[in-house]
Design a protein around this nucleic acid. Structure first.
Lengths: 339, 339
DNA sequence: TTGAAAGCGCTAACAC
DNA sequence: GTGTTAGCGCTTTCAA
């Protein structure tokens, strides 16, 4: 009925272990034996059962990714790059979307452990997440992505210096009246971007008026509220958005209101999502090195997976990936009105 | 060392099968036995090994999703909804991104089969894909999503009538000079949208001038080329884009060129991606019923998985989900210049 | 170079 | 109600 290594062995007239050796090259096999095994495999259309192999080997060659969602471009890109990196290493990715649900996160970790994944990559949501604590109760290496977790393994962008980069760029262009559109301050990454931005501005003796700071959710819709700036006196000449989607929303509304980018208003975003390159002019943004983050996370995880085999234990590492500013067309030097 | 059902049994002073029965409620267990089993599980922090269970049960409770990418909003949404639907049914999703690579698609199917997934959901790329043929060689139910495949199981939107909906809407608003921005005609879905659109227009005795049809890739960047329409005589008063991303690109460029939406130009897109709701005014678009497609695909797959157990065989079904037009602010009645 | 046998962790008859 | 036993399909000593 079901074709197993046994059926192949029988047809080829050898023992199952010989077929196994042939398959895994775990022992030399005589040329003619090999041939008949090959033939048997072909005629039966045999396909190894990786579940059985995993049980025996205690390795599933699979990795779980837990992520808040994948429709947010940044997360989607992270997930996709991770999948690609795992594919290269011949690991299968089990995707778990937490939908920002803290309970679900926990259950997903638990499930992945039950499924015997070799490791877990986790983009966890919020400081109240119990995931860190819980993760200690499972005997599986886990790497936190996109947020530094002291005492754990993590790979994240230095959001503070990302904020600084944005501030410096605007300051150097001569902007002195700057608006901020800030996502949820509870998200540490967002808070750090704001913090870095304001810190750097202070160094330039630039103050941001409270009226020039808007708070909202990191969604396009929030960006539309940029119009509130247009009636302010003085009116900002540049805007920093804590992510690109918000920047795009702001941009759309500005154009609609007859305000040109960058002539009348400079815009700088954060994340360097794919779309930002395609705008016209393209969006200046502080890029998280998505590819590097994902690659480093996978590398670190695989390293831990293999090291745990040797019972070695390297110390927790918080890898910080520096952001990079991508200066494109949406920011321009301030045309001084009194110059 | 490793804690198994055996260790639990030993500690609880019962047989492994009793623990199993307790766990799976496959047989009644005396109250006090249950208690000591519970305690043993708790003190040992026991966690069932689903790999072993799968081997025994010949069911992994996992499903593979093969999809070209997840950074395209439509695909990202499909993938996310599918994950959620599977989560509800307690199935784990194994994500495989094909990156439009036909070879890779095949290897991924093969891998999923080796991993003994219970079923496969596939959003396959292009007509030259050998996936359909190959899928017949594996003993696992597979459902094709987003494209109807005669003779196979599939769930897809009726793109032709989607195109018709768009055309009718614009015609009813009084538009007679209409521009089209068309994605890759090799993608059948795109071709069908165009086809439906033109067919319906013909019914209204409206011709689309060849100069008013632009071809490109389904990306935001392509949308920017909308400006080519602005210099044409006559100039279109409305634009149909074969997907929302292109529509957004067009919109951005129009605003930049001082052309207001919808006053000076109506825009209608296709897909109803999340972002389209948030534009200002929101984008009129023909929506694929993403949620329904995903839900139906999962439902159909799970049904087949369970039916195959009973050796029943239902006939291949090509489920067609009707699209729906979402009339929002980006389209408006033509202001007749001579009226 | 090959085969016999044991066992990965679990479930399911079947007997008690 | 509970225990014994026999596998699920594979790898891996170990012996021949």
């Amino acid at each position: 009925m079901k074709v197993t290594i046994r059926s192949v062995a029988k047809l080829a007239g050898v023992a199952p272990s010989t077929v196994s050796h042939y398959l895994n090259q775990s022992a030399p096999v005589a040329a003619d034996t090999a041939l008949s095994v090959e033939r048997a495999i072909a005629t039966l259309n045999y396909r190894v059962n990786l579940g059985a192999r995993s049980l025996r080997m205690r390795k599933t060659h699979s990795v779980g990714l837990i992520i808040p969602n994948i429709t947010t471009p940044f997360f989607g890109e992270i997930a996709e790059i991770i999948e690609n990196a795992l594919w290269d290493k011949e690991y299968q990715m089990l995707l778990c979307i937490s939908e920002r649900d803290l309970e679900r996160e926990i259950v997903q970790i638990e499930n992945l452990a039950r499924r015997q994944v070799d490791g877990i990559l986790m983009v966890y949501q919020g400081e109240q997440s119990k995931a860190i604590q819980f993760s200690k109760s499972i005997p599986i290496p886990i790497i936190f992505v996109d947020r530094p977790i002291p005492g754990e393994y993590s790979v994240a962008t230095d959001n503070f210096s990302g904020g600084q980069l944005a501030a410096r760029h605007l300051a150097e262009l001569g902007h002195r009246c700057i608006g901020m559109m800030c996502g949820e301050a509870e998200i540490r990454n967002v808070a750090e971007r704001m913090d870095g931005f304001l810190t750097e501005l202070r160094r330039w003796k630039i103050d941001v008026h409270p009226d020039h700071i808007l708070h909202g959710r990191q969604e396009l819709q929030f960006g539309l509220r940029v119009e509130e700036f247009l009636t302010k006196q003085p009116r900002p000449t540049a805007i920093f958005a804590t992510n690109d989607i918000v920047a795009v929303g702001a941009w759309l509304k500005l154009l609609e209101r007859g305000c040109r980018v960058p002539e009348d208003m400079s815009i700088i975003g954060f994340d360097n999502i794919e779309m930002s390159r395609f705008l016209s002019p393209p969006l200046t943004t502080v890029g998280q090195a998505t590819r590097e983050i994902a690659a480093k996370a996978v590398e670190l995880l695989l390293q831990r997976i293999n090291e745990s085999e040797q019972l070695a234990n390297i110390k927790p590492a918080n890898v910080v990936i520096p952001p990079a500013i991508h200066i494109r067309g949406s920011t321009a030097a301030l045309l001084r009105e009194r110059g």
